[in-house]
Design a protein around this nucleic acid. Sequence first.
DNA 1: CCAGTATCCTGCAGGC
DNA 2: TGCCTGCAGGATACTG
Length: 279
Amino acid sequence: MLPTMPELPEVETVRRALENVLTGRRVRSVQGQTIQMRRPLRPEVIARAVSGRTIERFRRRAKYLLIDIGPPGHGSLLVHLGMSGRLSLRSPEDPREPHTHLTLTFEDDTELRFIDPRRFGLADWLEPGAEARDPSLTRLGVEPLDQELPRILPSLFKARRSPVKTLLLNQALVVGVGNIYATEALWRAGIRPDRSGIRTSAPRLEQLAHDLKDVLSEAIECGGTTLRDFSSPAGELGYFAIELDVYGKQGSPCPRCDAPLKNMILGGRSTAWCQRCQR
DNA sequence: CCAGTATCCTGCAGGC
DNA sequence: TGCCTGCAGGATACTG
């Protein structure tokens, strides 16, 4: 099984899991060390803001997790899992995983640990009002699960000269899509990953929007199934085995036509695709 | 504004 | 066995 990178479905699965387990719980303390990530991690700032406070709500925007800390209007903890980020629910006696950068300890000693070996992720405190000005959040495009996506996506892509794959990864246009689900959606829609947006018809882009919504929804559903199967809520969150058709399967037969899947590099990212099915 | 490339970082796979 | 190299990629800085 391939490792599942945190894209929208994984973040949404983590959000739902945390919502069920931690909503209304009070944080006793916060531990961590100042470290360079996408933004400098500031555990002492987070500790001051969060210690003794109650978790009010878990929200998701794009691949960002927003943890609202009570009382209303107090602020939010912003978390991005980057490439290798994980959140795990543990007990104090569980051995500390390498690259644990931040730990929230709750009143019953449960620990929420943020682990990220590659440090492409971030955890930062957002003061009231900071969310509306934060450059990471203000430059974001449309949520792909928005029911309007099939209407919006063609208008966003039709004037662009970049390959459609690159456009899918552009968070200023559509959010939450990474290399895995961009690759899968293009295969489902039968569109060559390197076809330029401007040379892709509106109906085909509309089809792509539907296929993107479908694959993301199915992955979230799969994550929900995984959560229901947990005997206890403790452990790794958001990592589950969705059945992928083409991602990482260069050389294997296309599930639709059996032709060997090819590989192309776009924007420095490898892309599996079928030369027969995708045009 | 747009398009394309470099950069950050660690773990792991493959070659010899 | 162990060392080296290259690859994996999300967001963003930078260049043209």
